[in-house]
Nucleic acid binder design. Sequence first.
DNA 1: CGGGATCCATTCCGATACTG
DNA 2: CAGTATCGGAATGGATCCCG
Lengths: 138, 138
Amino acid sequence: MSARTVVNLRPQDVPIRTPDLSNLDFSNCPVRDLISQIGGKWSTLLLEALAQQPYRFGELRRLVPDISQRMLTQTLRDLQRDGYIAREVFPTKPPSVEYRMTDLGRSLYGPLAQLLNWAEDNHEAVRAARARFDQSLG
Amino acid sequence: MSARTVVNLRPQDVPIRTPDLSNLDFSNCPVRDLISQIGGKWSTLLLEALAQQPYRFGELRRLVPDISQRMLTQTLRDLQRDGYIAREVFPTKPPSVEYRMTDLGRSLYGPLAQLLNWAEDNHEAVRAARARFDQSLG
DNA sequence: CGGGATCCATTCCGATACTG
DNA sequence: CAGTATCGGAATGGATCCCG
């Protein structure tokens, strides 16, 4: 089975989530709590890079040229805090720091990659929908 | 096959995404373009509700009590613009407006629900990781 | 009923300069 | 090399009032 086939689920295969919307505790909503972090501007890009292999700070910076130093540091720290990636310092001179995915991160990357694949596959459809919508407003 | 089993992929089943990170056009990055919308504060919640059945504006508002009127309107319009949901006005007095998922929206909801399931299943693990991280800082 | 318009606080994020 | 510190603009989101 190719995991990719999941993208083409028939409707009856789509998992039905029936959370009790009327009783949601919004201060502790798991979905929002995790998704809001994943949805950050640089999170998925860094998770994609580190899903392929470990990288050092400077390597990541070169891989993603338009990320600022500040956001690279901050996003990596947030991903580490959530347990998706691990940070290892090698006491060389000058010091080098390597980031790698954890088991939890790889576990997340399964369903996340499905969604990213969907986004690539359907980007044109969404862009077309946006164009129609904007057009209909004159 | 249960779509849910995808969440428990073995490593060799995880789809390998190898985007050319060195050549990414960031002004037109499909992943960020779509994910940033999905990652909004209320998008997934409304997609979950409408994945189950169509709802009217006021019904959605009661389902998600702490969303402001402004954000409900805006999020629904953004989801409609991207083609995930459709808006139908019934010219009653006073008017009623119904929102329902489109085929594109249901197609998105397949992989999205996988991710939401992961978030629920692993929320405790992430919270524990955060606690360890914060603890390690004193 | 289903919004639109406005104002305001908070958060996000980039640019720049500095450091062990 | 791998960060930290500070500043300021942009975007996000809530509260309130108004409207057909």
